[in-house]
């Protein structure tokens, strides 16, 4: 039997602020298979971001176990976490987090700086991906010259550039108008159709319903986990089609 891509058992996370110990996650058990499109949905303060950070190797869990591709990754050190992020994970952030001094192409190439790929290959790979997200004409533009939707598409290309096992999108439409937001959701849906595993973190039910499955989280616990029956679909013009 093939291992699930992500599996956690009784995953807990505590923060120490001053003298006070706060538990954010109270024991999360979940399983996500390769090729899924999952929304982790919950109000702010529910622990959904913390869960995403741990699953995305940005943060360490306090207790419990985390299996990635069947391997126990609960106790990786900082360098090992960085290597996992470099090889297995792509991130799309709400605030885009692009470097303004670099061109769109250089932004997409950034994760490849920390791999062994040659510069020529890196340029080819980044150009391909920007073409895929419809920005072939924007390669040399600085992010400050791009619209919000275009910025997020550059960020998606950057998330894809290292050919990750899973893409985490943290409120990817949060800073966008609804039309640009839908274009971004369309790209994510297309990527999922091509076999990419996508984990979307959002507090909006509507955005969450673009995924195939929703995991609801509240006060550090999973409260619901179900397949989306009436899924939302966006087309490339940013129109909603059901």
């Amino acid at each position: 039997m093939e291992h699930p891509l992500i599996k956690t058992q009784n995953l807990k996370k505590q923060f120490e602020t001053g003298q006070v110990l706060t538990e954010i996650l109270h024991g999360v058990d979940l399983e996500i298979k390769k090729g899924e499109f999952v929304s982790i949905m919950g109000p702010s303060g529910s622990g959904k971001s913390t869960l995403m950070h741990i699953l995305g190797f940005l943060d360490k869990l306090t207790t419990g176990t985390y299996f990635f591709e069947g391997e126990d990754v609960s106790e990786l050190n900082d360098d090992e976490l960085a290597v996992m992020r470099s090889k297995k994970i792509g991130f799309v952030f709400q605030a885009f987090n692009l470097l303004n001094r670099a061109s769109a192409l250089e932004n997409v190439m950034l994760p490849l700086l920390y791999t062994k790929m040659s510069k020529k290959e890196r340029i080819e790979r980044a150009t391909d991906l920007l073409t895929q997200v419809g920005l072939a004409h924007r390669l040399e533009n600085s992010p400050s010259k791009l619209s919000g939707g275009e910025k997020q598409r550059v960020a998606i290309a950057r998330a894809l550039v290292n050919n990750p096992e899973v893409i985490f999108a943290d409120e990817p439409t949060g800073n966008l108008d609804s039309k640009s937001g839908l274009q971004v959701m369309k790209i994510l849906q297309d990527l999922n159709e091509l076999g990419n595993t996508i984990i979307l973190v959002t507090h909006e039910k509507y955005t969450a319903e673009h995924a195939k499955r929703i995991i609801k989280i509240k006060d550090g616990l999973i409260t619901d986990d179900y397949a989306v029956k009436d899924r939302q679909f966006a087309d490339s013009n940013g129109e909603l089609t059901k």
Binding site: D79, A82, S86, F91, N97, L99, P111, L113, N162
Partner: peptide, 16 residues
């Protein structure tokens, strides 16, 4: 700071 955070998020190790 944000740039450093980003670089780390996309796989830069401390030594990088």
């Amino acid at each position: 700071t944000r740039e450093i955070g980003l670089r780390k998020a996309v796989g830069a190790r401390a030594r990088d």
